[in-house]
């Protein structure tokens, strides 16, 4: 459903993603693991074109989200890109809630402004989502008065409100105090059980093991491993992965 095809990405001279191919199926939960600086966040951010790629293509349901015209490789303009991004939700490490809007306003912003949904309808939907992440009673609060874990759950509700085909999670628990990690992971686990398609960059090994259908291990811009969590965590053939995993034992 979401595919990367021979993607190359550079930051100046630095070759961050090297000919990366990746394919995500409907209802699949893919966890991307790797040491810091390996390119895993960059990989995720290219999937909704927050990072532009130099070469290759990204396809959502077999349609390029980068090019207007595959033959001529003509890139989409920002307006056209914004249509593509409606279909791909994203949850950030630092939540990035809109601080000048209440929790409810954060969640209805996309549906009302982008999807042109009626406000009443968007509010009903938002309240349902806030209930689902356990924060309905906070709907008229501003983000600054919420804990990190609560903010991240609102951010998840905001992404869900757009009813996206896939949600990307960029280290969703890395900025949280340890005791707040669980509440966010629980919400993500629920979504996985409901069959939402998700791509998750994370450092939470146990969580990845639990929730992912597939693990992708990336190092220095190359995918070194792709397979089931069982295979990954019992991997002792590949030295690089063994070394990475030994850090978490």
């Amino acid at each position: 459903m979401l595919k990367m095809h021979s993607v190359n990405k550079y930051f100046g001279e630095h070759h961050v993603l090297k000919n990366v191919d990746l394919s995500i199926k409907n209802s699949e939960v893919v966890a991307i693991l790797g040491p810091s600086g390996s390119g895993k966040s960059t990989l995720l951010r290219t999937l909704n074109v927050l990072e532009e790629i130099e070469d290759g293509d990204i396809l959502l349901e077999n349609r390029s989200i980068i090019y207007k015209d595959d033959a001529q490789k003509k890139r989409k303009n920002p307006k056209q890109l914004s249509y593509e991004r409606e279909e791909i939700g994203m949850v950030f490490q630092n939540f990035n809630l809109f601080p000048h809007k209440t929790v409810l306003e954060n969640v209805i912003e996309g549906p009302v402004q982008v999807r042109k949904m009626k406000k009443e309808e968007a509010v009903v939907n938002a309240e349902r989502l806030l209930k689902r992440v356990g924060l309905l009673e906070k709907r008229n609060k501003y983000p600054e008065s919420l804990s990190g874990g609560q903010q991240q759950r609102v951010a998840i509700a905001r992404a869900l409100a757009m009813n996206p085909k896939v949600i990307l999670f960029d280290e969703p628990t890395s900025a949280l105090d340890p005791e707040l990690v669980g509440e966010v992971l629980d919400v993500i686990k629920d979504l996985a059980n409901e069959g939402l398609t998700m791509v998750i960059v994370t450092h939470e090994m146990n969580f990845a093991k639990d929730v992912a259908d597939r693990i992708v291990f990336i190092d220095e811009g190359n995918i070194l491993f792709e397979g089931s969590p069982e295979e990954f965590f019992s991997n002792n053939k590949q030295e690089r992965i063994g070394k990475f995993l030994s850090n978490f034992k």
Partner: peptide
Amino acid sequence: KGQTEAAKSIGMSNSKLFIRIIFPQ
């Protein structure tokens, strides 16, 4: 910068994200 990225990730156009998200802040 995360504000711009969050607005883009819900599909906001550049003009809308400036008017509704960036400029008020």
